[in-house]
Design a protein around this nucleic acid. Structure first.
Length: 449
RNA sequence: GCCCCCAUCGUCUAGUGGCCUAGGACGUCGCCCUUUCAAGGCGGUAACACGGGUUCGAAUCCCGUUGGGGGCACCA
């Protein structure tokens, strides 16, 4: 599962790396062995590739767990400097003492001089005074009082180091100059910076990207919101549209433009211009933008992009004819905003029977539907099978009943396609062919009684 | 509770002291086109959270208020 927020951060990182000629490094932060799956990495790589980031666009992936030796060494350095100490407090101990779940560590073991042992973690001794200023390209330079920074854990009781330390060590070693990540990490920045300094390095420049929120203005969460890039991909959002939209969240290209070629984005983007307030993930807008991209596709490309959704393995029909779809594609292109929608747009042509929908049937078969269908059947039996002719003949049938084409076509549409709305009717009939069309009209007449 | 952040139409944004009776896009509404539905065209709707300053002048700068958000794990 690749979170859309992560995707946006990745995009920002990517663009910045390309602009500066620097390298983008992909690091899998797997220091917590208890919650890690190798296949997740594959998913991340696949998602990045879908967005346009092939393996040659970044260095790595590096696995953080592979650096355990250096992490351990850094830990020793901190111990030797007296910047870290052993602690045997459990979380419950701390809460019992402070009476507050969210108060952070109280420094109980700071000067107990504990040695290593089972159940003992290592905490970093944060300075009692002074301030830590985080140089952040997006939110100015937030200042943190060192005194309010708790003594955080840098190594677990089992000896493994935590994310904070591992990151600092790896960042220093990989000579990271810019850290661009979600705002939820902002409060980690001063801690990590303290670590960088303690390890003798000059801290990087940060950019904490505002979170993406839902309609209730809360950070998008896997639990309650649709956040997986893969889900959008499966619905038929185009990667070009997705990355264009993601870049629009918190940033805007020059001029009154929104649909912008990627090369322009790459040329114009500046992390300093990213808004510092949270942005709502508006699927309606995403959809609109996707529609623009879909319509801009050459029709052959459009047809090719639709293929996965039409494949009998996935579609509700057993077999389908690519030649038929090719003829329908141009009719469907302006009517599809998200590729998955192609299925119900053209299913009438591949299903043995038109799909039946009670509401559609009732709506389409109102009034003189029976007479209209009878008239159409007669008119079509020997008609030259062209859309033009089919239209003219049904028009005449309608006129005989005092109806305009808009009304007269309704029963035929429902009889043949099963729906009240859809592709242009006469063109569809032409492609469907006389035999099927007539058979469906006859079937509908029977059903009508 | 503590730390940090944020605040322009419903939404994403433009705007960096006069060009702003605040622009664009999505949404929404209406009209046109029309074989349904889209697409397309035209038009409407709708915002500087509030209160104080600073200034000749403030959406833009400062302070406060209110409101929202993020974080406070031996997760990352």
């Amino acid at each position: 599962m690749f979170h859309v927020g992560g995707a946006r951060s990745a995009l920002f990182n990517w663009v910045m790396a390309r602009q500066s000629g620097g390298a983008l490094v992909l690091r899998i932060e797997d220091t917590d062995t208890s919650r890690n799956r190798p296949e997740w990495t594959e998913g991340i790589i696949r998602a990045l590739a879908w967005l346009g980031m092939d393996g040659d666009e970044y260095e790595g992936p590096y696995f953080q767990s592979a650096g355990a030796a250096q992490h351990a060494e850094a830990l020793r350095t901190l111990m030797d400097q007296g910047r870290a100490y052993y602690c045997d407090c459990t979380r419950d101990d701390v809460i019992a003492r402070t009476g507050d779940q969210h108060k952070g560590y109280d420094g109980f073991c700071r000067d107990r001089g504990l040695g290593p042992g089972p159940g003992r973690a290592v905490r970093f001794r944060t300075p009692d005074e002074g301030q830590t200023t985080v140089v952040d390209l997006i939110r100015g330079n937030p200042v943190f009082e060192n005194a309010v920074l708790e003594d955080f854990v840098v190594a677990r009781a089992d000896g493994s180091v935590t994310f904070l330390l591992a990151n600092a060590v790896d960042d220093i070693q990989q000579r990271i100059t810019h850290v661009v990540r979600g705002e939820e990490h902002l409060s980690n920045a001063p801690k990590q910076q303290l670590l960088w300094t303690a390890l003798g390095a000059e801290p990087p420049v940060w950019a904490h990207v505002p979170v993406i929120v839902n309609e209730k203005r809360q950070k998008l969460s896997k639990r309650r919101d649709k956040v997986a890039l893969e889900d959008y991909r499966a619905e038929g959002y185009l990667p070009e549209a997705m990355r264009n939209y993601l870049m629009l969240l918190g940033w805007a290209p020059s001029g009154d433009r929104e649909i912008v070629p990627w090369k322009d984005i790459e040329a114009e983007f500046r992390i300093e211009d990213v808004n510092s307030s949270p942005a709502f993930f508006d699927v309606k807008k995403l959809r609109a933008i996707n529609g623009e991209y879909v319509r801009a596709l050459p029709v052959e490309r459009f047809a090719a992009e639709c293929r996965p959704w039409l494949d009998p393995a996935r579609a509700p029909w057993d077999s389908y004819d690519p030649a038929v779809f090719e003829r329908l594609a141009s009719l469907a292109q302006t009517r599809v905003a998200v590729l998955a929608e192609i299925v119900e747009m053209v299913d009438f042509a591949f299903l043995p029977e038109p799909p039946f929908d009670e509401a559609a049937w009732n709506k389409g078969m109102k009034g003189p539907a029976a007479e209209l269908l009878a008239g159409a059947e007669d008119a079509y039996r020997d008609a030259p099978w062209t859309a033009e002719e089919l239209k003219t003949r049904l028009e005449a049938v309608g006129t005989a009943h005092g109806l305009k084409l808009g009304k007269a076509q309704a029963p035929v549409r429902v009889a043949v396609t099963g729906r009240t709305v859809g592709l242009p009717l006469f063109e569809s009939l032409e492609i469907l062919g006389r035999e099927t069309t007539l058979a469906r009209i006859a079937a509908a007449r029977t059903r009508l009684g």
